[in-house]
Amino acid sequence: MSIYRELEKIFETVISDGPVELTAETQSADVPGWDSVAHINLMVSIEQAFGVTFASAEMASFQRVGDLVECLERKGVSVSN
């Protein structure tokens, strides 16, 4: 499973009851329910799910899902199988 698929699962669980498709170019406006409140829910959930810690500046810097994935990869996250 790719990082994208993992993230889709988290998005589906935390902010929506429908399927979510994420690409590098997906932005908050593209996903119903991804507002500033949901953003915090996502950050906490992603930190727990991947066992990483975001810097406060990082949390505010994710414009596209691709930024988020790059950041996770920088932190050593790799999802296989």
Binding site: I10, T13, V14, S16, D17, S45, A49
Partner: peptide, 15 residues
Amino acid sequence: LEFIDWQAATQLLRR
């Protein structure tokens, strides 16, 4: 008491 479980349950409760 996991945050993600509670978020998910909150979504579930709405339905």
